[in-house]
Design a protein around this nucleic acid. Structure first.
Lengths: 216, 216, 216, 216
DNA sequence: AATGAATGAGTATTCATTCAT
DNA sequence: TATGAATGAATACTCATTCAT
């Protein structure tokens, strides 16, 4: 008895600290985020911070990794859905559109931590490796959908899947990057429009495109 | 007498300091970059730093702005070149491809400074405003080329210029963003391939597209 | 039932802690000796330390007192032996020679603790009082032997017992003091040679001295 | 102009800091001696402390070395005086007697620092090496006086110079050591009496000793 | 304008101690 | 009694900034 609630308590405490760290960092910046304030925001003592994390840097490294992990779950959610290539591709684009505002909101803090980790080669590697893994995972998924669609004849035959993946990812990353300094022009609508244009003109089959042109 | 050479000397000194600041920041990170070391790298004394810049933050704000200014010049170089819409669009894409490695190299330092400026709303606004201006400038340029091309009938009629601009910019931004953590997969070649696919399928006229399909 | 073994257990535990404290202090220095590590070296928990001692300072005060007590036992062992003044004096000198390496080994830790107790007048007094008691005890013993020997005519008549006691103690203390920084030149052999010279020339009767000179 | 007074100022500042460090350490103990308070006692800022010394440990290491250097000067003063062996030996003993109260007063602080340096092998070696040098220097001086005196026939022929040097040094060290915990019984008078007894009985020639016994 | 010695505000981190179990 | 997670007081040290020269 009590063990469960204790385990939950421990898990909760760790997550409480990570979120408190992000929250204070968002308000004050990395350097301005005093451990004291983070502890207080997480409703633990300063010493407890150091029972969970080696030091400030380690705390924020883990805060970033946890943010990535949430992003990964967000992006994979609809990728594994059933359906034909077109439906699944649309699912991925929809997931991206849904993820953009959430990820964008976390980027200012993440960018800060990227900067701080610049000094620690090892931490930086670990942080970026996690990020690359998410991208590679998703790129593979998209590319196999594109190939599958081409073979099944539901996608146009003449595009280069790798270039299209780069374009899709680029459009997505671009919105995230831009949201940091130009939130007005970085949003789900713009992302959706750009992706739709890319898919309509480059990926969808000629019939669709002819239909289009017939409309014009 | 001597004023000219002194002005040149002053200009040179200012730039020397800005570059020294970037260089030390790249090696040590923002916090690790001591004014002492920057001064020494710029071959001036610590006190001289404060004759050119208000304080450390101001120094780095200016270092970022100078980096942006160089990027702006890089990107505009071929935009203003003469020629038809197709040539000018290709010129812009070529300029982007050429700019990517230079800008990418400067991003780690810029990201650091973004983080630092988080605390100073005013500095951040000034920094981001400069960045937005570059983007707006270029977006306008591209969009007018696209419209001009559509009206002249040298581009396909049915794409949405705004969506295409977003896509082009997105692909470009995406490479810059990604280069920070995944340099292997962010380079001019990838950028070129993605842009080419976008333009070929969405922007170039049907003839070209039909030609394509004739090739297949 | 079990009380005895528990008492023994408690006694053992207390001594284990005191020795662990000395051992860790020898390795890490007083400040570097964490209660955690002492507890671990004594195979008890941190909390248990506080069941035996008020606090860190109290623990180390007791560690020093225990060291003194052992030194006292070592030095008194042969003092109370039977025999004439000469034999008993020799016994004392032999005990000193035997004690030197043991005491010397403990001095580095003791010196550390002296320093720490500087802040706590009361603790320092208690610690130094114990040390003075050992010295006074032994000084009395030696002086009474010297007087007894003079009255019995087995020692030379013209030395000042108090000065000789000071000299004997000084030579002993000097070796202990010096062993802290110059172990090469502080050892039983040197102590023995110096004490022998003192006794031969100053304490033993003329006959011996004449015999000596006859040898020369 | 001004350079001299500046040099003096710099020298003075360093010495002011060293003395302030000793003074605060004597009052509060090593750990209790806050850098802030030392700076304030030396009438400089905290930062200036670190312009002169690497860190707290280095500051106190230098404080001890400077104390040794003063002791060395004190002890050598009369050693180099002219005169026969007997006069010079008396001069050394007189210097010791004069040095005792000064050195004794500094020992509590020095002992503390010995303890602190226990953790830093290198600092400890440097500190103890300086101390050993003083002792070796003086031991050589005394021994050569003793040998010279024996050869000249002004000292007794039958003592072992090395043992006598050990005894003299021992008596001296013993007083210093003892002064730390038993100042009542460690003073110049006691030192003088013990040294006199040693010299009278062991070093001075038989004539003197016979004269003595004639007095008795 | 240039210098660099002096300043002192500001904070991460440690670890002795407590106390609920 | 024993445990060890949680606490928070306490402080060495750095380095941006100033200003007398």
């Amino acid at each position: 008895m009590g063990t469960e609630s204790e385990d939950v308590g421990a898990a909760t405490k760790r997550v409480r600290i990570l979120h408190a760290a992000r929250e204070v960092c968002a308000r004050r910046g990395y350097d301005g985020a005093r451990m004291e304030e983070i502890a207080s925001a997480a409703r633990v003592s300063k010493g407890t911070l150091y029972n969970f994390f080696e030091n400030k840097e380690d705390l924020f490294l883990n805060a970033v990794l946890e943010s990535y992990e949430r992003a990964r779950r967000l992006l994979r959610a609809e990728t594994r859905a059933p359906g034909g290539p077109a439906e699944r591709l649309e699912g991925i684009c929809a997931a991206m559109a849904k993820a953009i505002p959430i990820i964008s909101e976390e980027m200012p803090v993440n960018f800060q931590i990227w900067g701080v980790m610049a000094r620690d080669e090892k931490a930086r590697q670990r942080m970026f490796e996690a990020l690359r893994r998410i991208y590679a995972e998703q790129a593979d998924e998209i590319q196999s959908i594109l190939r599958e669609g081409q073979q099944a004849g539901v996608f146009a035959a003449h595009f280069d899947p790798e270039a299209i993946v780069t374009a899709i990812h680029g459009i997505f990353d671009g919105q995230i990057y831009r949201s940091a300094f130009d939130p007005e022009n970085a949003n789900s609508t713009r992302l959706g429009a750009a992706l739709e244009a890319l898919l309509r003109h480059a990926v969808l089959p000629k019939r669709a495109r002819l239909g289009e042109s017939a409309d014009g």
